[in-house]
Amino acid sequence: MHDAAASFASDWITVDQAMVDRFADTIDDHQFIHVDPERAKAESAYGGTIVHGFFVLSLLTAFTRTALPQTGQGAVEVNYGFDKVRFLAPVPVGSRLRGHFSVAGETAKAGGVLRSYAVSVEIEGADRPALAADWLVLIVGG
């Protein structure tokens, strides 16, 4: 069990255009605001390309590697879902992001522990986070 008051921050990750383009290919979302820097600069309110919201959400897994203590040997963490996800600010391509995690609670569930995290993704230099979420992770084994 984790201390419910514990809070963890990840290392920074820079999201470049090549990463966004690969993600666009993976999910088949090639909207110009994500993949066409010249058009996005000329035609959008963002001044350039922005990162897909679902890409930012998917980075939570990467952020956990440097933010959260590793589970015990033999334990497996399984994505259980989200109680809430909000995309709060656009993320310009080239931004540095990091995840912030706080343990919101733990309950016994299905032979393991269901842990809830309050999560936010910080955009370096921005006033608002990119997203806020309540993330559920099932820890089994170990």
Rank of each mutant, 00 (worst) to 15 (best):
P69D: 04
S58H: 00
H34K: 11
I50W: 15
E38W: 01
E43N: 05
V15L: 01
A4F: 10
S7L: 02
D83W: 00
I27S: 08
V76S: 04
I27N: 07
A75S: 13
R65G: 12
V121A: 01
G48I: 03
K41W: 06
V78L: 15
A108V: 15
D3N: 11
A9F: 02
Q70W: 05
G48V: 08
A45Y: 01
F63G: 03
V56Q: 02
A40Y: 14
F8S: 10
D3E: 13
R128H: 04
T64A: 10
P37L: 07
M19P: 02
G112R: 05
E77A: 13
V113H: 11
A89Y: 03
E77M: 15
M19N: 01
Y46F: 15
V78P: 09
A130W: 03
D16T: 10
D25N: 13
R22P: 02
G81Y: 07
V113R: 15
D16L: 08
V121H: 15
F63Q: 15
A9V: 14
S58D: 00
T49F: 08
R96C: 00
V85M: 03
T26C: 05
G81V: 14
V78N: 13
A18D: 14
G99R: 09
G125M: 11
A4L: 02
I50P: 02
T71E: 00
S44H: 09
H34A: 12
D16I: 13
A130L: 05
V103C: 15
A75F: 00
L97A: 10
H100V: 07
I13M: 05
G94I: 10
E122F: 01
H52A: 01
